[in-house]
Structure formats: structure tokens, C-alpha cells
């Protein structure tokens, strides 16, 4: 079953915390990922982990365009759509 937007945000927050090994408490959809101190390769690791958890695959060519948490969640949501 597809996760809700709020659930996806929680998954992102938890995954980012695990990957970067730093507690993130105040992430919103408008948060710019690089401003969390997460570089492009760190973001890829988060994406990989989310793909595994949600059993989806995001296209490589779409990943370069991700700037904000919202960009990523929208991509995930689209991939989850039946």
C-alpha cells in the first residue's frame, strides 16, 4: 500500500538520520537537502535506502533534479502510484 505524504516525510527523516548519523528533527517538505549538510552522494544513499524500504525504483535521470525534500517525496509518490 502506498505511504501517505506524512509517512514519506517521516521515512525520509529517519533514513537521513541513519545515513548521515545526525539527528534531524525539523525537516519539512520545503527543506533544501543540501542545507542539511547532505551532499549529492549522501542523498543518493538516502534515495537507495528509501527505495529498498518502499520497494520502488526511481529513475537515475530524475535524481539529479532533486533539490528539496518535496522534490524527492513527489518522485517517490509518483513511483508508488498504482
Amino acid at each position: 500500500m502506498a505511504s501517505s505524504r506524512a509517512e514519506l516525510l517521516t521515512i525520509f527523516q529517519k533514513t537521513a538520520t541513519e545515513v548521515v548519523e545526525r539527528e534531524f528533527t525539523n525537516i519539512s517538505e520545503k527543506t533544501v537537502i543540501s542545507e542539511l549538510g547532505i551532499d549529492s552522494l549522501g542523498m543518493l544513499e538516502i534515495v537507495g535506502s528509501m527505495e529498498r524500504q518502499l520497494k520502488i525504483q526511481l529513475p537515475d535521470e530524475a535524481l539529479a533534479g532533486i533539490q528539496t525534500v518535496e522534490d524527492l517525496l513527489s518522485l517517490v509518490e509518483k513511483r508508488q502510484a498504482p
Binding site: 543540501s34 551532499d39 549529492s40 552522494l41 542523498m43 543518493l44 537515475d60 535524481l63 539529479a64 533534479g65 532533486i66 533539490q67
Partner: peptide, 11 residues
Amino acid sequence: DRAVFLQKVFF
């Protein structure tokens, strides 16, 4: 930027 690194280097 981030996009350039992924598009032109990593992938």
C-alpha cells in the same frame, strides 16, 4: 552544483 555532479560525474 549537485545536479552537475550526479549527471556529469557519478552516473
